[in-house]
Write a protein that binds this DNA or RNA. Sequence first.
DNA 1: ATTTATATCTTTTTT
DNA 2: AGATATAAAT
Length: 742
Amino acid sequence: MDYLEGLNEPQREAVLQTEGPLMIIAGAGSGKTRVLTYRIAHLIYHGVDPFNILALTFTNKAAAEMRQRIEKVVGTESRNVWMGTFHSIFARILRIEADKIGYSRDFSIYDTDDSKSLIRSILKELSLDDKIYRVGGVLGRISGAKNRLVSVNEYLRNTTIQADDEANRMPEMGRLYKIYQDRLRKSNAMDFDDLLFNTNVLFRDHVAVLNKYQQKFKYVMVDEFQDTNISQYLITRKLAAVHQNICVVGDDAQSIYAFRGADIQNILNFEKDYPDLKVIKLEQNYRSTQNIVKAANSVINKNKAQLRKNVWTENIEGPLIDLIKASSDNEEGNLIANSIFEEKMNNSLRNSDFAILYRTNAQSRAFEEALRRRNIKYRIIGGVSFYQRKEIKDLIAYLRFTVNQNDEEAFKRIINLPKRGIGESTVAKIVVTADENNINLWEVVSKVQQFMPGRLAAPIDNFSTLIKSFKVIANQKDAFETATHVAKNSGLLKDLHEDKTVEGLARYENVQELLNAIKEFVDNPENEDKTLSSFLQSVSLLTSADDEKDTDTDKITLMTIHAAKGLEFKHVYIVGMEEDLFPSQMMLASRADLEEERRLFYVAITRAEKKLTLAFAETRYKFGRLKTCEPSRFLNEIDPAFIRMDKSLNGREAAAATLVKSMTPRKPTVVPANLHTPSQDFVPSDTSQLTGGMKVEHPKFGFGIVKDVEVQGNDKKARIDFEKVGEKTLLLSFAKLKIHTN
DNA sequence: ATTTATATCTTTTTT
DNA sequence: AGATATAAAT
């Protein structure tokens, strides 16, 4: 058992303790993944059938990596371990057992966009004020209920919740929840939360089914336990109820998904639920230098709610944490890019040794530009992913509707694509007709003459004939052939092909790439079910870390801190260390404590192995206008012994004044980012500089003289007398003006 | 029904 | 800046 070599005492104990309930509290960088991997390998090595092992991870990517590592120890048998995210594993089970809870196995999975769109339609139908009932808020409320396993009926019955909603001026919330849920069911669709909620329902109402899986999963393991919600916890508890071999691994200090219903309380409850629980703490950090570990500890110790533990390391002291001050967000990008270039040369590192971590996806822009300019390769994880693109969602919607004709959201997306002369009002009418007659969407569409005779019947009829023809193909052919057929015959591909612009070409290629992905899916021997339906379910559960088919691995990684969980890099840059950004304004506004934000900072720091650099900007564009920023309070929370700061100053001032590290220090650029078309006659115009009497040119209205500039709150308006068209009032932030120099 | 212009609003993290 | 809603024009 050579895999036990090189494990420290608690690690080895965690691997060998295979029977009974076990909780592993694993500090950052303490070799948690290694333990989990060897633990599974150990089980298989000792004759446990991989079919009897369930391992729940946070991303599909983590599962795939773990599977590979186990395979190295025990061989291809490891492929049969059930390993994946909660959502993907239970979607798989729900697919098998769908009929027991009144779904068909081809149910659609709604992503957040679909859910929001559905809520938007419902709000419109009920003519509720969407200023009060904000789509995101309504969905959040419903999601919160589902994560706590509060059903529609319980929601409506619960007086506390009702009072709460009324206090928030949303008395109809319960009704919305009910209608939303009815509509999902009618669409034969589940949203993300339903996958967990319905699994709970399945296991509650169908003892035989529960027994089946209890027998199957003799060993249950949960990674990132601190980020599970009640709904997830109850599923695992039920599954492990017979054999009691449940092992959870987590770190309360790294709980960063409370906004999604994650509950650290689960860790505390776990001890109550399993009185003979064994707890093992992994506290030795193998990842980072002393300075990084100590700096991280100094930060997390500011939190009150935490299980005390002592993360320590034998690693070298390492360099101090650097702090970079930039005058603007663009300069921040430049300075970081320069720093990476320099570090890479000095220490002969590869691009893949670096990561840039930020709080929000929107921050990536400045870094992308700076890196591109320097020809440094990078990859962005998350953000607008491949599967979020319009052309991809369009084709997927077609495929979804081919598989499930009651998928309302897919229907809305494709009914007028390509244009069939069926507008918004017609779509609403179809949905309402289905609702009034208490029939499914597809009934109305396929028998349109009967329900909605008239001018629009013909195009709708054509549409349903088209879908029927797709369905015939889907029943005979595999996912790839069906998808290719649909792409060609729906007219989508033709539309894109005719678009000869650069973007159009890219979109066409994206669709081709989707078809390639489907081909790969079909060709992959690990996928037993090669139907379109199976492909669609796997695709809708990809995590942001997953959808990456990038063969070139030597790239700098750019991502949010959330996406960085579980990863490590030699050199980490945490950027945007500014008040209102990190900690985020929303966290500051809601008077909740900043503990989760602080844990997020802790997670970010502990990603670094050798060197950590923090950066902040003094000014930043927000909603198109320049704002001054204050350095983050978190900078002051790092023990100054571990960070390179200017000692002559105190507190936040010190942070602000600290050395600016750069090969080529440069002035911040003053040219506005949006307008640069330098020519002989025109200068790039910062329209905010516009004053009366200036000669300007507008792309449509031609030349004109500015008569008046008026400041209106945050915006400016200009009255301009154009030679050709006379006087116009333009909003400056939108006016595509050029200022004439002469 | 669809396109185009203009006004208004946005304010995190993700399965 | 970018997305989305509304109004007006085609």
